[in-house]
């Protein structure tokens, strides 16, 4: 199949991959560690712009990827530090603010193309097949990393911070360090996704990293089921592809995202994963809520 990949297929695979990466990266912050972020697109954008700038300096694509991640997680570290100072309710608003500040800043920067966008991003030099390969490899690597973290003691600690951070503290957990780690890892991966996106579109405008994008990423995590890795992947793929294949869905994409968020919260706050968990639990006639959203 590789040699006959058309431009449309390539773009589908890359966009799905980028969205899965983004959803998984936010899942580490919001899903595993319970810190709701409404500004994830900012880290995605920082990675993308950093990649564009680095690429223009002549840094090769495969070196740009981790560097863009580093730039992303530098901002993530700052936001993480800020998040420690504010209550949970404030965090959502602070991260949303970071998103607005990022877009508001880039819009006015001529060296980043301002409103007109940045279009002189170099070619990655890998060819279509090579680029698709890199995307898929990144998705697999991030999924495996997520699964590893979830099963490690770090993920165990994240779960207690998400559940009840005060009690977690009385058991000796340095909640601040755990939250920062989640932010650093999640925003690093968002930066990598940004670099991938930049090299794919080779054209960046501030609007591609706005509040709507942050909400779309959040929708993938929430609809998939906070914390569930397979659920988030399924949701990210479905929410990216449905508008492509169903015309009506494309016309009302944002409307459908909104309605999906409401319905998920109202009917199954555990998302897809929670729903499947409940179904299989009731079939096995186990008590409900035995594991809830985190199978």
């Amino acid at each position: 199949m590789l040699p006959t990949l058309g431009a449309y297929e390539v773009s589908l695979i890359v966009i799905v991959s980028v969205n899965v990466m983004l959803a998984l990266s936010l899942n580490i912050i919001t899903g595993l560690c319970g810190q709701v972020s409404l500004g994830h697109a900012a880290f995605f954008g920082v990675g993308a712009y950093a990649a564009a700038v680095l690429g223009n300096l002549g840094v090769p694509f495969l070196v740009v990827l981790p560097l863009a991640g580093l730039v992303g997680c530098l901002l993530g570290l700052l936001v993480g530090l800020a998040s420690l100072r504010v209550r949970a309710d404030f965090l959502a608003i602070t991260t949303m603010g970071v998103g607005f500040v990022f877009v508001g800043f880039v819009r006015k920067q001529n060296w980043l193309g301002a409103e007109m966008g940045l279009s002189n991003i170099p070619d990655h030099g890998l060819g279509d097949a090579g680029f698709v390969g890199v995307c898929l490899a990144l998705v697999v690597a991030i999924a495996l990393l997520s699964a590893y973290i979830k099963r490690s003691w770090l993920g165990f600690g994240f779960a207690t911070v998400a559940d009840d951070e005060d009690t977690s503290r009385t058991l000796g957990i340095d909640v601040a360090a755990y939250k920062l780690t989640a932010f650093v890892v999640g925003t690093f991966l968002a930066g990598v996704a940004g670099a991938t996106y930049a090299y794919f579109t080779r054209f960046l405008i501030p609007g591609a990293f706005g509040f709507g994008v942050s909400i779309s990423i959040l929708a993938m995590v929430i609809v998939g089921g906070v914390g569930s890795i397979w659920g988030v992947i399924v949701a990210a793929v479905a929410l990216t592809l449905l508008p492509e294949f169903i015309r009506v869905v494309n016309d009302y994409k944002i409307f459908i995202y909104g309605v999906l968020l409401v319905l998920t919260m109202r009917l199954s706050p555990g998302g897809l994963a929670g729903l499947v968990g409940q179904l299989s639990a009731s079939r096995a006639e186990m008590p409900p809520r035995s594991a809830g959203a985190q199978p």
Binding site: Y148, I149, R151, S152, W153, L154, F156, G157, L171, G172, I173, D174, A177, Y178, T181
Partner: peptide
């Protein structure tokens, strides 16, 4: 697991 969770890197390294 308090010996493993006291340090974030240690926590990441053990399963």
């Amino acid at each position: 697991g308090h010996a493993k969770t006291g340090n974030v890197l240690r926590a990441l390294g053990t399963r």
